[in-house]
Design a protein around this nucleic acid. Structure first.
Length: 567
RNA sequence: GAGCCCGUAGUUCAAUGGAUAGAACGAAAGCCUUCUAAGCUUUAGACCCAGGUUCGAUUCCUGGCGGGCUCACCA
C-alpha cells in the first residue's frame, strides 16, 4: 500500500522529467521528510552535481498539484517527500480495515505447492530448546508461504532407525536392566541415551554389542523388535504432545524405518550406474571432490545404512505426492554441507525436482554447545515451566483481582509467546547464545512488550464505546508526527512479509512487531485517544489504533504468537 | 589442511554502496490525582585489522586475525 504512495511520487517525478529506477529510501530523520529520492544516478548521467539536480527537481515539482504528498524539499543530493498524514491515514486505515486478517498477504506463490518438512526429530533422544527453535522457524516459514499464495503440504520425517536408537536401547537393556519409567517417558529415554553415550565413550569394547543390536532391530528381529516398537511409540506420543502445543498438524509423516530398505536399493542402483563406488573397508561412497564436496559415505563397510541412505529414498517419496513443486526442509546449519552432498548425489542420479534446504543457527549456551552427555542442556519442558512460573508470579502481583483460571489462561498465552519470540528474534542463520535472564526477559525487545501494546489497544477500544462508522471518520484530523510514523509502518507491513520469506528469516517479522509496538507506545504516551480535544479526533485515533492492532496481530500470527485482551 | 557461516556500544542484536550506523539489556537522571509504569522521556557508549574497487565502503573484493560449524563408517 505504500505502493500507492510511491506510485504518486513516481508520477510526480515523471512529470518533472525524471524516469529513474533508483530506489527510494527513508530520510534519517522524520523532520527531513518521509520518503527520499536519491539523485546520484541522474547526476552521473547528466554529469551534474547531485545536489543541483535535487534542487532542480524540487523546484519543478513544487508547482504541481499535490495530494498524498504534502511537500517536497531538496536536502543535498536527495529530493525528500513529505506525506500528508490525513491522506495517508485514509489510504492505510481503509485498506487494513477492508482486508482485516488478510492484510499483508500477497499472491507471489500463484498457487504453487510446496512441501515443508520439519523438525525431523530423532526418536530416543531428548527434546531441547534447539528443537524448539526448529519448530518456531518452521512454523513461521510455513505461514509466510501460506500468506504469499502458496499451497502447503506440511510433513515430518522421523528418524526412528539408526545408531542413536541402538545406543538408547542398549542403555535400556544394560544400564536400566529393562526397568521402565512411570511417566515422562520421552525424557527418560533421552536420559538413558545420554548416559549410554557417556558409558560407551568410556567403554569402546561395547561398541560391537550396540552395532549388533542395531542390525537386529533394523532386520525386525523378534528378540528386540517389541522393545524398539514400544519405546518408539513413547517418543512419538511425546512428539505428538509437543506438536499439538505448537499448533502443528502434519499431512504426512515419513519414518526412517520405512525408507531404509528402499534407500539401500537406491545405493545399489547408484553402484550399478557407477555413480557410487566401493571405498575403504567395503564402504559405498560417492566421490564428489570435483564439485568441491569431498566424499559422501552412503553405506558403512558392515552394510549398515546412514542418514543419507534413507534420505535418498525420502526425496523420491516426497515427490510421489501429486503436484509438489518444491520440497523444503529445515534443520540446524551444521547439516548444510550434508545436504549439499545429498542434493548433488540426487542430481547425479537424474533427480530433477526442486529441493531446498534451510539451515538455521543452533541454540548454544554460554558454556558452549548443548550436550546432554555433559549434562549441559535445556529441555523444552523445563524451560516452559520456568517461564510459566516466572510469568505467573509477575502477573499475580500486577493483578491480585484475577481469579486462578484467568491467571492461568493469560499466563499460558504469555508463556508460549515468550518462548516463540525468543526463538525468532535473532536472524535465522545466526547462532543464539541462550542466556536465560537475557533471552527470556519481559521488558524491551520481548514478547510481553508486544502483547502489552495489544492489550492497551484492546482496553482503548473497549473504553471508547464509540460506534465508529467508517464513513464518518475525519482522517484529516490526524496530523501528529507519531501518527504518521505509525501509519508508515503499518503501510509497510506487506513488504515485511515478502522480505522475511525471501530471506527465510522470521526475525524480520519479529523486528517489525517490535517497531510497530514501539511506535504505538510512543504515540500512546504522547497523545491521548479517549481524552482528545474532541470526539471526532478520538474516533480517528481509535481507527488508527485498530489498524495498528490489526497489523500487529497479523504479524504476531505469522510468528504463531497469540495475543491477550488484558495483561 | 579444505569448505561454509560469523566479527557493529560494557552485553545481546539491527540496518545500509551514500545525508547524523539504529534498538534492547545494563549504567545515570526524570515521568503515574491523566486512556494498563510489562510503559514513556533524556544522557553516556560501537562498525576486528590492512590493502583494493568506487566520486563515496561499516556494507562489495582480496589477504590477515579471532570465533562457530562441517569434511569415510558419527548423528
Amino acid at each position: 500500500m505504500l505502493g500507492k504512495v510511491l506510485e504518486e511520487i513516481k508520477n510526480l517525478l515523471r512529470e518533472a522529467g525524471v524516469d529513474s529506477t533508483e530506489d527510494f529510501s527513508v530520510p534519517p530523520d522524520p523532520s527531513m521528510g518521509d520518503i527520499a529520492f536519491p539523485c546520484f544516478g541522474i547526476a552521473k548521467e547528466q554529469k551534474k552535481n547531485p545536489a543541483e539536480v535535487a534542487k532542480e527537481i524540487e523546484l519543478r515539482i513544487k508547482n504541481y498539484e499535490l495530494r498524498i504528498v504534502s511537500a517536497v524539499k531538496a536536502f543535498g543530493p536527495y529530493v525528500n517527500f513529505y506525506l500528508n498524514t490525513g491522506e495517508l491515514a485514509r489510504l492505510v486505515i481503509e485498506e487494513v480495515k477492508e482486508k482485516a486478517e488478510e492484510y499483508g498477504n500477497n499472491d507471489d506463490g500463484n498457487g504453487r505447492k510446496v512441501m515443508i518438512e520439519y523438525p525431523s526429530q530423532n526418536t530416543h533422544k531428548e527434546f531441547h530448546i534447539g528443537h524448539l527453535r526448529n519448530i518456531c522457524i518452521g512454523n513461521t516459514l510455513t505461514r509466510l508461504y501460506d500468506k504469499s499464495g502458496y499451497k502447503i503440504s506440511l510433513v515430518n520425517y522421523v528418524n526412528d532407525f539408526g545408531a542413536h536408537v541402538a545406543k538408547c536401547l542398549w542403555g535400556v537393556i544394560t544400564l536400566r536392566r529393562g526397568k521402565e519409567p512411570e511417566d515422562n517417558k520421552l525424557k527418560w529415554l533421552g536420559e538413558v541415551y545420554a548416559e549410554a553415550g557417556n558409558y560407551l565413550a568410556e567403554h569402546p569394547e561395547k561398541k560391537d554389542e550396540v552395532e549388533d543390536l542395531q542390525n537386529k532391530f533394523e532386520a525386525h528381529d523378534p528378540s528386540i523388535w517389541p522393545l524398539f516398537s514400544r519405546t518408539r511409540d513413547w517418543c512419538l506420543e511425546g512428539f505428538e504432545k509437543i506438536y499439538r502445543e505448537m499448533g502443528i498438524s502434519y499431512e504426512r509423516v515419513f519414518y526412517e524405518s520405512e525408507l531404509k530398505e528402499r534407500g539401500q536399493q537406491i545405493v545399489d542402483e547408484l553402484l550399478a550406474k557407477k555413480i557410487a563406488q566401493v571405498g575403504e573397508r567395503g564402504a559405498i561412497i560417492v566421490d564428489l571432490t570435483e564439485y568441491g564436496l569431498d566424499i559422501a559415505l552412503l553405506r558403512k563397510g558392515n552394510g549398515a545404512g546412514l542418514y543419507i541412505t534413507s534420505d535418498l529414498a525420502l526425496a523420491e517419496q516426497k515427490f510421489s505426492a501429486p503436484d509438489i513443486d518444491e520440497s523444503i526442509n529445515i534443520t540446524g546449519d551444521e547439516q548444510n554441507f550434508y545436504f549439499k552432498q545429498l542434493f548433488k548425489i540426487l542430481e547425479l542420479n537424474g533427480f530433477r525436482r526442486k529441493l531446498t534446504h534451510i539451515g538455521y543457527g543452533l541454540v548454544n549456551l554460554p558454556e558452549g554447545k548443548m550436550s546432554s552427555r555433559q549434562g549441559r542442556v535445556i529441555l523444552y519442558d523445563d524451560l516452559r515451566e520456568q517461564v510459566r512460573a516466572h510469568l505467573t508470579t509477575e502477573s499475580a502481583e500486577r493483578h491480585p483481582d484475577w481469579n486462578r483460571e484467568k491467571l492461568a489462561d493469560i499466563t499460558d498465552t504469555l508463556t508460549m509467546a515468550v518462548l516463540k519470540f525468543t526463538m525468532q528474534k535473532h536472524e535465522a542463520n545466526k547462532v543464539i547464545v541462550f542466556n536465560f535472564a537475557e533471552e527470556v526477559s519481559f521488558e524491551g525487545y520481548s514478547a510481553p512488550y508486544l502483547l502489552y501494546a495489544v492489550a492497551r489497544i484492546n482496553s482503548l477500544i473497549r473504553k471508547s464505546e464509540l460506534k465508529i462508522s467508517h464513513s464518518k471518520i475525519k482522517y484529516e484530523l490526524l496530523k501528529e508526527s507519531e501518527e504518521k510514523q505509525l501509519l508508515i509502518l503499518i503501510a509497510n507491513y506487506p513488504e515485511v512479509i515478502k522480505k522475511a520469506l525471501a530471506q527465510y528469516n522470521p526475525s524480520v517479522v519479529a523486528k517489525f512487531c517490535f517497531d510497530l509496538a514501539q511506535k504505538f507506545s510512543e504515540f500512546y504516551n504522547k497523545h491521548s485517544v479517549l481524552n482528545a480535544e474532541n470526539e471526532e479526533l478520538t474516533a480517528a485515533r481509535v481507527a488508527l489504533c485498530m489498524a495498528a492492532k490489526n497489523t500487529l496481530v497479523n504479524a504476531l500470527g505469522v510468528l504463531s504468537i497469540e495475543t491477550v485482551d488484558e495483561m
